[in-house]
Amino acid sequence: MQYTHLGRTALMVSRVCLGTLNLGIRASDEESYAILDTALERGVNFVDTANQYGWQKHKGYTEEFLGSWFAQGGRRREKTVLGTKVFNPMSDWPNESGLSARHIIASCEDSLRRMRTDWIDLFQMHHIDRHAPWEEVWQAMETLTRQGKVRYVGSSNFAGWHIAEAQEAATRRHFLGIVSEQSVYNLVTRHIELELIPAAQRYGVGVLAWSPLHGGLLGGALRKLADGTAMKTAQGRAAQALERHRDAITGYEKLCADLGTDPAEVGLAWVMQRPGITAPVIGPRSLDQLEGAFRALELTLPDEALTELDTLFPPIGNGGPGPEAWAW
Rank of each mutant, 00 (worst) to 15 (best):
Q182S: 13
R172V: 03
V281N: 07
L66T: 02
P275N: 12
L99D: 12
C108F: 01
M90Q: 15
M12D: 10
G54N: 03
F294T: 08
H162F: 02
M141G: 06
E136I: 00
Q240K: 11
Q182W: 02
E64D: 13
V150R: 02
Y252V: 06
L259Q: 08
G219V: 00
G98N: 10
M272S: 11
A209S: 13
G24M: 09
S100G: 10
S180L: 06
L312E: 08
E181N: 15
A132N: 02
V44P: 02
T62M: 05
W69D: 05
T62E: 04
H162K: 00
I197P: 04
A305G: 07
E41D: 13
E64H: 05
G154T: 02
A234R: 14
Y3A: 04
D37I: 01
Q52R: 12
I163S: 01
F87R: 12
R116H: 14
L18V: 06
S14M: 02
T171Q: 15
P198A: 08
T233Y: 00
S97K: 15
G177V: 04
R75F: 03
I249W: 04
I120C: 05
F175Y: 11
G317V: 00
T233K: 02
T250N: 15
Q56A: 14
P212M: 11
T143N: 07
W138E: 07
R172A: 15
A169S: 14
F87A: 11
T80Q: 08
D262Q: 10
M141Q: 14
Q147Y: 08
V281Y: 02
A325E: 02
W270L: 04
F65P: 00
H127M: 10
E30N: 09
L290M: 11
G276L: 11
G98W: 01
A106E: 13
S28R: 11
P275F: 14
P321R: 05
R26F: 15
D258K: 13
L225D: 05
L208M: 11
F87L: 10
A293W: 00
C17A: 10
N95T: 13
E324G: 03
K149H: 10
G317A: 12
P275R: 09
R146Y: 15
Q147T: 06
W161Q: 08
R285L: 05
